[in-house]
Design a protein around this nucleic acid. Structure first.
Length: 984
DNA sequence: GCTCTTTAGGAG
DNA sequence: CATCGCTCCTAAAGAGC
C-alpha cells in the first residue's frame, strides 16, 4: 500500500481541478480508476505541470489545442458544465481576483473528484479518443466550485474511506471513534494535517476544510493558537492532535477536556477567554489598530467590503435573518408534514424575544459588567457611534437604541460601552431556536431574527382544550427558564395571543424578562381594553412616518405618543385609507381591532413563500468617499462580484438589477458630523432589465456602471451605493443556452480534425506561464516544440502578417457586423440600454420606409424634431476615413492596431477616431461603438498572446479602450439625460 | 384602464 | 482616535401607454 499516495489523496489542494481520471494510470493499484494529482502548497504552475504529466499524449495534445477553441467548445471538450469561462492563466492577468484568492487562501480548498455527469455523448468530440473527463479544468473559477465543495469533499472522503477499508481492513469499517464529530484542523500539527484528516475520516469522523458561520464544527485540532484564533475559537472544543491519536489507539473517543488546548473547564471558558483576550489585546494593540485603519476605512481598498461587513451590526442582522429564513425553507421542504395555518384555524401565537439581546450577551461575556447594576450599551466608538443595544439600567436614564453614544452620555454620564461579540450572539440565538424546537410543542417555529421567533400552536392541537391559557403560561415559563439556563443568564420575554398583533402587544407588555398571555380575551371590548394603552408605534408596520401622518390629520392636538385607544376613538376605515392609502389604511384599521391583516398573516398561511428569497442586495452607505468614476467602477465591480458569487452559490439568476445611489445634499457639509457617515443625502435609483435572466458578473456590473452614469452623481458627492438583484429565479438549462459569447472570436477548429496533432498557433496562444509547462512536457514526450514567432527573426513573418495570412481572409475577428435582423440571442445579452437603441434604430428604419410611402409627417409634430434627426442617420451613412461599409471600417481599425501595436496610436488619429465614435453614439448607434470596442479588445488580446513582454503600444491601446471608449459607451447611453456629467 | 419604475417606509 | 448608517419586503406614487 502506497501510504504517501493515499495521504496525498487526502490532502487539501489549492485547486478544484486536479483530480484526473485516467484508465491507464497504475492499473495494478487499488486506485487504478481514481488516480489523483493534488498539491497543497506548490505554486500553481507546478500543479499545472503535474496535471499535464498525468495525461496520455492524445489527451495532452487535445487539451493544449483546446486552448485555442472557443470557451464553449472548451467546455464541451472538457465535459465542463460550468457557465463561467475556463481560465488557464495562473498569472492573474485575466482573473486577478480569483488567482489572488488561490494564493492567499490555501485553506479554502479541496480536490474535487470527477463526477459522473462529466462528458456526455454529444459533448465528446471524438468518441474513439480516450475519455478525458478533466472536470473543472479552470484554474481560476472558484465560484461554482465553492457551492458544491462541501458535498464533493464528503463524497470524496467517503470514497477514500472505502478504498482504505478495502485495502487495509478487508473491506471492514474502522471503529467509528469519531462518529458525529465534525473536525477542523488549524495550523501546523504533528502528525500533520494529511495524516490527521485521514485518521478522522477513516474512524468515522467528518473533516472540515474551512470554518464558516454555516458549518458547525464540533472540534478543532490545533497544536498552538495565536491570540486572535484563541478568541475566534472560544466557542469550539479545541484539542491537541494527540486526542485523535490516543482515541484511535484506545478505539474509543477519549474525553476531549483532557486534551483541551485551552485550559479551564467548559462552563468557565467564556469568562476565562475574555480575560485572555483582554490581556492579549493589551500586548499588541497598536499594530492591530494601524492595520485596521489602513484596511477598513478606505472604501477604495479591495477588502473594504469584507472588513466593513465584519463590523456592521446591521449587516449581521440582515445576514442572520436571511440565513434563518433559508434554513426554515430548507427544513420546511424536507419535512413536508409542516402545515401552514388556514384562515379560520384558531391559533396561539407566541412571540419570543430576547431582552436587549446584544447588551445582555455582551455583558454576560465579561464578569466586569454588572448587567443589572451598570448602565451598559453596545457600541463601537465614543462619540457619533450608534448604540446597538442598551440594558434596562441605561434605558432608565432615557438612553435608547440607535442613539449616539455622545448624546447617551449626556443623559447617563456613567454609561459603559461594551464591544460587539457577534459570534456569541449567534451562539445564543442558536440555543434559543434549539430550545424552541426541542419543546416538541409548536406546530411552527417562524424565524423573525437572530433574537426573535414566533411560535405557532393550533388551539385544536393543545392537549387540553379547556384551559388553553394556562397551558400557554406553562409553556412560556418553561421556555424562559430553559433559555436562561442554557445561555447562562440571557432572559427572553414572551407575548402570547390569538393573533400576531395581540402577541406582539403582549410581548411589549411582558418586557423586560416577563411573559404575558392574552388568550382569553372575550369580545371586542376586552380586546380594546387590552390594546388601548399601547402606542401606535407598537403596532407592526407602523413607524414614525405613518404616525406623523396620522397625527397631522386626525390627532392634531394629541400627546407626543398617540395610543391605539386615541386613534380608535377618532378614526374610521375610510379616514385611514384616505390618509395612508388602501392597504396601509386597512391594515391599521384591522390592527385597531386586534386582528391581523392579510399581508401580515401570510407568514402563517404560506410561510414558504413568505420566507423565500426574492432579491439580494448589497448596500454601503458608510465610509463611501471616492474621487473618480474609475474608483467607483472598481467598487461596483467588487460589489457585483460579491453578489454574483452569492447567487451563483444559490443557483439563482436575475432578470433585473437596480442601482441605488445616495448623493450628498447640496447644502450638506462635505464631512458630516458622524465620522465617515453619509450625512444628509438625496437618494436616486434606477433599475434595468436583462432580456434573459443572468448571473454573470460582467453583464451585471456593466449594467450597474451604466446606471450609475445615468444617475449623474458626481463622484465626490457619492455617499452611498446599493446594488440589488431583483426578481430572482432558479437557474435552469434555458439560461445557459441563450448565452452569446462575445469573447468567442478566435477562429474555431473543425471538431474532428487535428485532434492528435499539435497546432503551433494553439501552442503560441497559451499564456506564458502555462506555455513553459507545456513546452517542457512536449520535450518530455518527444513532440516537436513549435518555433517561436519572434518579431526580430528575419526568416519568420511578423506576427501580424502571420495573423492576416492565416485568418485574415476569414475575417472572423471582425466579422461581427450590425445584426441585419433583431437576432434574439444577440439582443438578449446586450445591456438593456443598448437593446433599446437597437430596437429604436430598427423601428426608425421601418418608420422611415413607411413614411416615405405615406409622407404622413404632420400628425407627429411633437415627435418629428428628434425623429427627423434619427432619420438623417439612415440616409447619411456614418463614415470613417471615407469608408462606409462596417466591414471596411473594422478592417481599417484592425490594421491600424496591428501597425501601431509597438509604438501606440497617434493622438491625431485617435482624435479622428474619437469623433467618429461620437458621431455613432450621438446617432443612437452606441451598439456599434460596443461592437468596435469588442473587436478591438479581442484584437489586442490576440496580440497579447504573442509575447510575454508588454509592448508600449498595446498598453496605450488598452488605456484608450478602457479610459475613453468604454466611458464613451456609457455616456452615449445617457445622452438623453441633459444633466449628466462625466469624469474621464 | 393597465403595467412598469421609482420612491418611501418599516423591520430587526 | 473617530467608526463600521444593512438588507429584506411591500405599498404608494408617478410615468407612460
Amino acid at each position: 500500500m502506497d501510504q504517501d499516495a493515499l495521504a496525498e489523496l487526502l490532502s487539501d489542494t489549492t485547486d478544484p481541478s486536479l483530480i484526473v481520471q485516467s484508465q491507464q494510470n497504475r492499473p495494478d493499484s487499488p486506485l487504478h480508476n481514481y488516480s489523483s494529482v493534488s498539491v497543497l502548497s506548490a505554486p500553481l504552475h507546478t500543479q499545472q505541470q503535474r496535471l499535464l504529466s498525468t495525461l496520455d499524449d492524445q489527451s495532452f495534445l487535445k487539451l493544449v489545442n483546446s486552448y485555442e477553441l472557443s470557451p464553449h467548445e472548451k467546455r464541451s471538450l472538457l465535459g465542463h458544465e460550468s457557465d463561467s469561462e475556463p481560465q488557464w492563466e495562473s498569472d492573474g492577468s485575466h482573473t486577478p481576483s480569483t488567482s489572488r484568492k488561490s494564493s492567499s487562501e490555501p485553506d479554502h480548498s479541496a480536490s474535487v473528484p470527477s463526477s459522473p455527469e462529466t462528458s456526455t455523448d454529444n459533448s465528446d468530440p471524438s468518441p474513439g479518443a480516450p475519455h478525458i473527463p478533466v472536470q473543472n479544468l479552470n484554474f481560476g473559477d472558484y465560484g461554482q466550485y465553492f457551492s458544491d465543495k462541501k458535498v464533493l469533499q464528503q463524497d470524496r472522503d467517503a470514497h477514500i474511506k472505502k478504498l482504505y477499508q478495502d485495502a487495509l481492513n478487508n473491506g471492514q469499517p474502522f471503529p467509528p471513534v469519531f462518529k458525529d464529530c465534525i473536525i477542523y484542523i488549524n495550523g501546523r500539527t504533528d502528525p500533520d494535517r494529511l495524516q490527521l484528516h485521514q485518521k478522522i475520516v477513516l474512524y468515522g469522523g467528518q473533516f472540515m476544510h474551512f470554518l464558516s458561520g454555516k458549518t458547525s464544527v464540533t472540534h478543532i485540532i490545533a497544536s498552538n493558537l495565536t491570540a486572535k484564533k484563541r478568541v475566534e475559537f472560544q466557542k469550539y472544543k479545541v484539542v491537541t492532535p494527540s486526542w485523535i491519536v490516543d482515541s484511535i489507539a484506545a478505539t474509543k473517543r477519549l474525553p476531549w477536556q483532557d486534551y483541551a488546548l485551552i485550559t479551564g473547564d467548559h462552563g468557565q471558558r467564556k469568562l476565562d477567554l475574555n480575560i485572555a483576550r483582554r490581556s492579549n489585546s493589551e500586548s499588541a494593540p497598536q499594530v492591530k489598530n494601524s492595520e485596521d485603519s489602513v484596511t477598513t476605512l478606505d472604501c477604495k481598498h479591495p477588502d473594504f467590503l469584507q472588513s466593513f461587513f465584519a463590523k456592521s451590526r446591521l449587516h449581521h442582522l440582515s445576514t442572520w435573518k436571511a440565513d434563518l429564513r433559508a434554513l426554515f425553507c430548507q427544513k420546511y421542504i424536507e419535512h413536508g408534514d409542516v402545515k401552514s395555518i388556514s384562515e379560520n384555524e384558531k391559533v396561539a401565537i407566541f412571540h419570543v424575544d430576547f431582552d436587549c439581546f446584544f447588551a445582555t450577551v455582551s455583558a454576560l461575556s465579561d464578569p466586569r459588567y454588572k448587567l443589572y447594576k451598570d448602565p451598559l450599551a453596545v457600541a463601537h466608538g465614543t462619540n457619533s457611534s450608534e448604540i446597538a443595544s442598551c440594558n434596562y439600567v441605561a434605558r432608565s436614564f432615557g438612553v435608547k437604541n440607535g442613539m449616539w453614544v455622545r448624546s447617551a452620555r449626556r443623559l447617563c454620564p456613567k454609561l459603559i460601552c461594551m464591544p460587539y461579540n457577534f459570534e456569541q450572539y449567534e451562539i445564543n440565538s442558536k440555543l434559543l431556536y434549539q430550545i424552541l424546537a426541542g419543546m416538541q410543542f409548536f406546530d411552527m417555529i417562524l424565524p423573525i431574527s437572530i433574537d426573535e421567533a414566533i411560535c405557532v400552536k393550533k388551539v385544536s392541537s393543545f392537549p387540553d382544550h379547556h384551559d388553553v391559557e394556562h397551558q400557554c403560561e406553562m409553556v412560556t415559563s418553561a421556555i424562559r427558564q430553559q433559555v436562561f439556563d442554557a445561555t447562562n443568564g440571557c432572559t427572553v420575554s414572551i407575548g402570547c395571543g390569538p393573533s400576531l398583533v395581540s402577541a406582539r402587544l403582549a410581548l411589549k407588555e411582558a418586557k423586560p424578562n416577563g411573559q404575558c398571555v392574552v388568550m382569553n380575551l372575550t369580545g371586542q371590548i376586552q380586546v380594546d381594553n387590552f390594546q388601548a394603552k399601547f402606542t401606535l408605534k407598537d403596532l407592526p408596520g407602523i413607524g414614525s412616518s405613518i404616525v406623523d401622518k396620522i397625527c397631522k390629520e386626525l390627532l392634531p392636538d394629541a400627546s407626543v405618543t398617540p395610543t391605539i385607544g386615541d386613534l380608535k376613538a377618532v378614526s374610521s376605515l375610510k379616514s385611514l385609507t384616505s390618509i395612508l392609502g388602501t392597504k396601509t389604511g386597512r391594515k391599521l384599521h384591522m390592527f385597531l381591532s386586534g386582528k391581523d391583516d392579510e399581508e401580515n398573516s401570510r407568514i402563517l398561511r404560506d410561510p414558504l413563500n413568505f420566507f423565500a428569497r426574492k432579491s439580494i442586495s448589497v448596500d454601503i452607505n458608510y465610509a463611501i468617499r471616492f474621487d473618480t468614476i474609475h474608483e467607483i467602477d472598481d467598487f461596483i465591480d467588487r460589489v457585483c462580484q460579491h453578489l454574483t458569487s452569492k447567487i451563483h452559490e444559490l443557483g439563482l439568476v436575475t432578470p433585473q438589477v437596480t442601482l441605488k445611489v445616495m448623493r450628498r445634499c447640496e447644502h450638506a457639509p462635505i464631512e458630516p458630523a458622524k465620522y465617515l457617515g453619509s450625512g444628509e443625502c438625496d437618494t436616486f435609483s434606477r433599475s434595468s432589465r436583462f432580456g434573459v435572466p443572468t448571473d454573470e458578473m460582467g453583464l451585471i456590473a456593466t449594467e450597474i456602471k451604466s446606471s450609475f452614469r445615468m444617475l449623474a452623481c458626481p463622484s465626490k458627492d457619492l455617499r452611498g451605493l446599493a446594488v440589488q438583484l431583483n426578481k430572482l429565479e432558479k437557474k435552469s438549462a434555458r439560461h445557459e443556452q441563450r448565452k452569446f459569447a462575445f469573447a468567442d472570436q478566435l477562429p474555431t477548429l473543425h471538431k474532428d480534425a487535428e485532434a492528435s496533432a499539435l497546432r503551433p498557433n494553439a501552442f503560441h496562444s497559451l499564456p506564458q506561464t502555462l506555455k513553459e509547462d507545456v513546452r517542457s512536457e512536449l520535450i518530455k514526450r518527444h513532440i516537436q516544440v513549435p518555433l517561436s514567432p519572434s518579431r526580430n527573426d528575419a526568416t519568420s513573418t511578423s506576427p501580424v502578417k502571420e495573423y492576416w495570412d492565416k485568418f485574415g481572409k476569414q475575417r472572423d475577428t471582425f466579422k461581427q457586423e450590425m445584426p441585419s435582423s433583431l437576432d434574439e440571442d444577440f439582443m438578449r445579452n446586450l445591456p438593456s440600454q443598448i437593446q433599446r437603441e437597437i430596437k429604436r434604430d430598427h423601428a426608425i428604419v421601418k418608420k422611415t420606409r413607411s413614411s416615405v410611402r405615406k409622407r404622413d409627417v404632420n400628425k407627429e409634430e411633437a415627435a418629428s424634431k428628434s425623429w427627423l434627426n434619427h432619420r438623417s442617420t439612415l440616409t447619411e451613412v456614418d463614415k470613417f476615413q471615407a469608408l462606409e461599409r462596417p466591414r471596411d471600417i473594422y478592417n481599417l481599425i484592425g490594421t491600424w492596431i496591428d501597425q501601431t501595436i509597438s509604438v501606440g496610436p497617434h493622438a491625431d488619429d485617435l482624435d479622428l477616431f474619437d469623433r467618429y465614435l461620437d458621431r455613432l453614439a450621438s446617432k443612437w448607434k452606441s451598439y456599434k461603438v460596443l461592437q468596435i470596442a469588442r473587436a478591438m479588445s479581442s484584437r489586442l488580446e490576440y496580440h497579447a498572446s504573442f509575447t510575454a513582454a508588454e509592448p508600449r503600444g498595446r498598453q496605450e491601446w488598452e488605456e484608450y479602450l478602457l479610459r475613453r471608449m468604454i466611458p464613451k459607451l456609457h455616456s452615449s447611453c445617457s445622452a438623453r439625460s441633459p444633466q449628466v456629467q462625466f469624469e474621464l
